[in-house]
Design a protein around this nucleic acid. Structure first.
Length: 580
RNA sequence: GCGCUCAUAGCUCAGCUGGAUAGAGCAUCGGCCUUCUAAGCCGAGGGUCGCAGGUUCGAGUCCUGCUGAGCGUACCA
């Protein structure tokens, strides 16, 4: 379909160039100024070319240009019409649909994928949990953005490695450990019957309560961190045990949501990296030693202040580690691009990091990218752990899953869906992921626990429902319909054309989503396809159409819808279920 | 103070490189289940695209200023 459009564009362009030549004017910028759109109504045609930009050069009013080009290209008979300054073109729909259906049929599971990123190695870092508490709603946005972007980039041909940098050391872990010693000694997640990451998180909360009464609490935590740093055996053992609890709990949440990693880095293993790099940079004059003894980066060149890369006592700061981690990752797996999926509050950090790497002379520093996303807020404002308003990931999914199960039961569809609680869980994940991906990544979003995750309207479950309907439609088609010939010329309705057109655009949407690292581009496209199909489904009989060929042709279109939605589901990490 | 981001219907959000009458969902009101799954479909109402200028044949989209919100501007992570 794209080919046909390109063909028309080049035809119109060459006419414009001819006209320029005979008028004796330059036509250099014409091709970039010629844009193609879609007429507001489908009976006006399928493609539209506004001719305003050429009026001045060709010294003719745009409407006159339209008339002239229409004439040169064959006029009404060739499907060309003029609406004021617009040149509208009706394309051969039957053959366009025929091509589309053939391509989809042939590409199978690869529909939507492409090779414009082939040969490119891209590392995507996301999630970055702390091991002192379970995942919350903010992590869920991070996780689904990272997972989805990784899948989208891979679909366009890149070789992708998903990595997670677990923050498993620091004073926050010590706080949980301290609380364990004070209040939880001897107990385990098993004895308490609590999910293991929750167990650790509860201890952290316990510490915070205790710290409000006990002035020395914070100091004790700091002392424990020092003991940890010096390798105190008992502290290290406890640390290992509690990190194990936290991580296994977090991993089970990943499993639930369908998020996975190719490589897990632990901060305890990487936090000493980078010091050497900073010293090297100091030697080569890229960094400098300040009067106070700290090693710094001067960022005057990019309009920023200075940044400490190594404390005056020689210890590392946050950015020292990231510097070292990036370099050692590239040594290990020479990526062309590294994408950090991290909240927008760290934009400054990444500007500094990328600049420092560039100054150190790494050519790949140019291709680093911070996928900066906004916060998830509640209607009353930020989630605050102190006020207990943090939305826990597991709790949220549990609640959604219960609601979905109740819905299945209310509809009396337990038998149809097979395993009702399994299906309910998949519906819950769809609702959650779709909700989180729908909003452009850069924007903050508001999560209303009561309303945000509904199952009706423009939602994940709506898409799943359409997929379930098409699946069932295909399963129920009679033998004669399955054997009949597909004749795309029978698909001559406007709604069939609109639907085909949206489906045809899908690969481009994937490509754009990959380019912008924005899965919301896909949610919009998939919703429109599902909605158009749903209308169509209500409007006309598909498998039950009077004529077997007509039914077969409509079924072919339905299969194209299914192929597109299924592909999109994979990229957005929305579970595919056959029935609901 | 300075920097970055955002402001579109009552609410939550779309709106690709500027193009014809700004779109969805939720909520409200009214219709449609003896026919392929009603988690659906159809219809109605609802807008000075924060404000003011500018560029352009044309601005929700680009530029400037203002207002408001969020984030950042650590030898925290």
């Amino acid at each position: 379909m794209k080919d046909i459009q390109n063909l028309w564009t080049s035809r119109v362009l060459s006419e414009l160039e001819n006209m320029a030549e005979s008028a004796g004017v330059e036509s250099d910028g014409f091709s970039s100024r010629l844009s193609v759109g879609k007429p507001p109504k489908s009976d006006m045609g399928d493609l539209s070319y506004p001719l305003f930009p050429f009026a001045k050069d060709l010294k003719k009013a745009a409407p006159a240009l339209a008339v002239e080009i229409a004439g040169r290209l064959g006029g009404e008979e060739a499907g060309i019409s003029v609406a004021g300054p617009y040149l509208n073109i009706r394309i051969d729909r039957a053959s366009a649909i025929f091509n589309l259906l053939e391509i989809i049929e042939a590409s199978g599971d690869d529909w939507g994928s492409g090779d414009n990123l082939a040969g490119r190695k891209v590392m995507v870092e996301f999630s970055s949990p702390n091991t002192n508490k379970p995942l919350h709603l903010g992590h869920l946005r991070n996780d689904i953005l990272g997972e989805s972007c990784a899948r989208i980039i891979a679909a366009r041909g890149a070789e992708v490695q998903k990595v997670n940098l677990v923050n498993d050391r620091g004073v926050h872990i010590c706080k949980s450990m301290l609380a364990y010693r004070k209040f939880g000694e001897g107990q385990t997640p098993e004895t308490m019957g609590v999910k293991s990451d929750r167990f650790v998180g509860d201890l952290y909360v316990r510490f915070c309560q205790w710290a409000r009464e006990e002035k020395d609490a914070e100091d004790e935590a700091q002392m424990m961190l020092q003991a940890w740093e010096s390798g105190d055996k008992k502290i290290r053992d406890l640390w290992k045990t509690m990190n194990g609890w936290a991580l296994s709990g977090i991993e089970s949440t990943y499993k639930r949501t369908g998020v996975s990693f190719d490589r897990i880095y632990r901060e305890s293993e990487t936090y000493l990296l980078g010091k050497e790099q900073v010293l090297k940079g100091l030697e080569s004059g890229v960094f400098y030693k300040d009067d106070d003894g700290s090693i710094r980066l001067d960022m005057d060149e990019i309009g920023l202040d200075t940044k400490v890369l190594l404390r005056s006592d020689g210890t590392s700061v946050y950015i020292t580690q990231d510097l070292g981690t990036a370099i050692s990752r590239h040594d290990e797996w020479p990526f062309d691009q590294l994408i950090y999926v991290v909240g927008s509050e760290q934009e400054y950090h990444f500007r500094v990091l990328f600049y420092a790497l560039k100054k150190l002379g790494f050519p790949w520093a140019e291709r680093l990218r911070h996928l900066s996303y906004g916060m998830v807020n509640l209607p009353e404002g930020k989630m605050k752990s102190r006020e207990g308003t943090v939305v826990d990931a597991d709790d949220l999914i549990d609640k959604l899953s219960d609601l979905a199960l109740a819905e299945i039961q209310a509809k009396g569809r337990e038998d149809d869906v097979g395993d009702a609680s399994f299906t309910a869980e998949k519906i819950a994940i769809a609702a959650l992921h779709y909700f989180l991906l729908q909003v452009s990544p850069t924007k903050d979003m508001i999560f209303n626990p009561e309303e945000s995750l509904s199952f009706t309207g423009n939602t994940g479950p709506y898409l799943q429902y359409m997929v379930a309907r098409v699946t069932s439609l295909i399963a129920k088609a009679s033998e004669s319909v399955r054997d009949a010939d597909v004749k795309p010329e029978l698909l001559n309705r406007d709604d069939e054309w609109e639907l085909s057109r949206r489906i045809a655009e899908y690969p481009e949407l994937v490509s754009r989503a990959a380019d912008k690292l924005d899965p919301s581009i896909l949610t919009v496209g998939l919703y429109e396809i599902a909605r158009d199909f749903s209308r169509y489904y209500h409007e006309v009989p598909i498998a039950r159409a009077d004529d077997a060929s007509l039914a077969a042709s409509r079924m072919a279109l339905a299969r194209a819808v299914l192929a597109t939605l299924k592909s999109g589901f994979k990229l957005l990490n929305i579970p595919y279920i056959e029935a609901m």
